[in-house]
């Protein structure tokens, strides 16, 4: 770890990701070690905020069931239409019944990413534990679904029948590897993007304490904040569309 404390210039870009007990005063107690699985931490709190925000948007927003929608209802309907169309386009008609699950993933990631951009907040999706769980749910779900729906034929996905016979075993190995790398890239992409963005923002915010370059640093933080807003939405979109792409393998048969 960079030890610059002695120079009076300390940037701790990773400190924002520390998981700690929420109802805990750091001055008097140790808030970070030996956290039990049931304890209420900042992760819990920000996930709860995300859940409440989703409920506010999707349930309270559509409360009126108005034919001419209010602004909130219109937003909810836009997200609904967007994800529904994505699921239908990518996975086909058979995939539409998994739409609620895809919607759950999209909304959770979108709201976690966006809430993480609030200064002093905590980004739950920047944690590998969270994104690996999300990706593994998709991976295991898709694999089990594919095996249940297509039986052993699901494994035919790895046997590229359009390639020359001599190449097929090699391709099969590559396909199997790439299949098992999916949850890794799926999760690390999300966590890495958010972690990198937030860490960069923090580093530039740290530079703002140096008088000479502080105007540049403040400008850079502003610019990166805008970029991070884009990244937050795009990563939620990417995670969702990749979920749909993987889902297509399971429900759309073994063609690859």
């Amino acid at each position: 770890m960079t030890d610059v404390a002695e120079t009076g210039f300390a940037i701790h870009p990773m400190d924002q990701f520390i998981v700690k007990r929420f109802f805990c005063d750091a001055a008097h107690a140790d808030c970070t070690s030996n956290i039990k699985w049931y304890e209420i931490t900042n992760v819990t709190v920000w996930m709860a905020v995300a859940v409440l925000a989703i409920i506010a948007l999707m349930v309270l927003g559509s409360r009126g069931r108005a034919v001419i929608p209010t602004r909130l209802q219109s937003m909810g309907e836009m997200i609904y239409g967007f994800i529904y169309k994505m699921v239908e386009d990518v996975t086909g008609h058979d995939g539409v019944k998994y739409f609620p699950y895809v919607m759950t993933l999209f909304l959770f990631i979108l709201f976690s990413n966006l809430l993480g951009l609030i200064p002093m907040s905590f980004t739950t999706t920047s944690h590998v534990a969270v994104t690996v769980t999300l990706a593994l749910l998709v991976f295991l779900g898709v694999t089990i679904l594919g095996l249940v729906k297509n039986g052993i034929g699901f494994l035919g996905m790895f046997w590229v029948s359009s390639a020359p016979l001599a190449l097929r075993p090699v391709l099969a190995v590559i396909e199997v590897i790439s299949y098992f790398v999916r949850p890794v890239s799926h999760s690390i992409r999300l966590a890495g993007n958010l972690m990198a963005g937030h860490a960069v923002m923090k580093v530039f915010a740290g530079f703002a304490s140096m008088a000479v370059i502080s105007p540049v640093a403040v400008g850079a933080v502003t610019a990166i904040y805008g970029l991070e807003l884009l990244v937050a939405v795009v990563q939620a979109y990417v995670f969702t569309i990749l979920t749909c792409v993987y889902l297509k393998d399971a429900v759309g048969g073994a063609h690859h």
Binding site: M86, D89, V90, S185, I188, R189, G192, N193, A196, V234, Y237, V238, I241, L242, V245
Partner: peptide, 18 residues
């Protein structure tokens, strides 16, 4: 959609090195 999927795959490898 294909654009974003392609970008995601290309970016994933960069994220690995990160």
């Amino acid at each position: 959609a294909n654009l974003f999927v392609g970008i995601a795959f290309a970016e994933a490898l960069g994220i690995f090195s990160f």
